[in-house]
């Protein structure tokens, strides 16, 4: 049952990731990317990582994809046709991407299988309560620093998006 869920979600993720790269219309690419993120959220739920499933759902499928869709609509890209890239370059891009996949997959095959530590297995580490405790005790400093990062990103986005008046 869980195995079937894993394979269904994996094939959905890979199919829609391929469609992100290969579809002509940027709006379709954005929508396929939303499907990919939903599949990855399903994987998080399968792995008992509830907190990450919710955060992935809100941040990626909610905020980031709306931002992407907004920019695609704002720039009116849904009608434009991408200028043709030469066949040689396309072939080279697909070939090198596939070659990277083959090398990485071959290195995984040569690896001996990792045995999960079933004696100390704890299925509740992904719950909000436990993860929050770890985040606010062991990792409080990076958490506070990330708020400064967000502040600077916000200021930068406003500064860049503002129309120059001179």
């Amino acid at each position: 049952m869980i195995q079937a869920g894993f394979y269904v979600l994996s094939s959905l993720a890979i199919f829609s990731a391929l469609m992100v790269v290969f579809s002509r219309n940027p709006v379709h690419s954005v929508l396929y990317l939303v499907i990919t993120f939903f599949a990855i959220t399903g994987h998080y739920a399968l792995l008992n990582a509830q907190f990450l499933a919710i955060v992935n759902f809100i941040v990626y499928a909610g905020a980031i994809m709306v931002l992407f869709l907004f920019v695609v609509m704002l720039l009116n890209l849904n009608a434009t046709i991408e200028p043709h890239k030469s066949t040689l370059l396309k072939f080279a891009a697909v070939f090198s991407g596939g070659l990277l996949l083959v090398v990485l997959a071959a290195s995984v095959r040569g690896m001996e299988s990792y045995k999960p530590d079933l004696a100390h297995f704890d299925p509740t580490i992904g719950e909000v309560k436990k993860l929050g405790k770890v985040l606010y005790t062991d990792y409080w400093l990076p958490f506070e620093i990330s708020s400064i990062l967000f502040l600077s990103a916000m200021v930068g986005a406003v500064l860049l998006g503002k129309k120059e008046t001179n």
Partner: peptide
């Protein structure tokens, strides 16, 4: 999840933070 260590999930949280800032900029 396989090694029952929450540090990996905390790191994913920070990756998401950086990705959101990167996309906005």
């Amino acid at each position: 999840a396989y090694s029952s260590n929450p540090a990996g999930q905390i790191f994913v949280f920070f990756v998401m933070v950086v990705a959101a800032a990167e996309i906005a900029i």
